[in-house]
């Protein structure tokens, strides 16, 4: 696969967002009562992280490694702050994948980016629902 430097950079940003998401799902798992949902979210982000790293290697780029730790927007101390952290990390992933969509003509990468954007946006909606956050769904995920 040949990707433009712009597409590679955007995909590295998306990979960083996936690393952060995996880490955050691990951080909050003790506080969120819906263990199935956190497990599913963590697994989905791990899978996306791995396919994204593979995709970068196929394009001849070295996938960027995870950071040692990530800073949630607010300290995670209970269920509400955990859900806020999950909403934030899914929104970050949406922004990153939307950035990929805007920077590549490659059909496979676009499809991958759309899937990742959609899945993160739907998970964000579920967490917003769980946390009673309004509006329950953002109109254009990844754009704000």
């Amino acid at each position: 696969m040949t990707l433009s430097p712009e597409a590679v950079a955007a995909t590295q940003t998306a990979l960083a967002a996936e690393h952060a998401a995996v880490w955050t799902y691990g951080l909050v798992s003790a506080f969120v009562s819906d263990a199935d949902a956190t497990t599913r979210g963590a697994n989905a982000h791990r899978a996306r992280r791995d396919t994204t790293a593979r995709l970068l290697r196929d394009a001849g780029a070295e996938p960027q490694p995870p950071a040692a730790a990530y800073l949630p927007p607010e300290p995670v101390t209970d269920a509400a702050s955990s859900i806020a952290a999950l909403v934030a990390v899914e929104a970050d992933a949406c922004r990153a994948w939307h950035g990929v969509l805007e920077r590549t003509d490659d059909t496979d990468l676009r499809r991958s980016a759309l899937d990742a954007l959609t899945e993160s946006a739907v998970r964000a909606t579920r967490w917003r629902k769980t946390g009673g956050i309004t509006p329950v769904a953002v109109a254009l995920p990844g754009t704000s």
Partner: peptide, 9 residues
């Protein structure tokens, strides 16, 4: 893409 994701939500 954002519209598609927005519809899924």
């Amino acid at each position: 893409g954002a519209v598609v994701a927005g519809c899924a939500c």
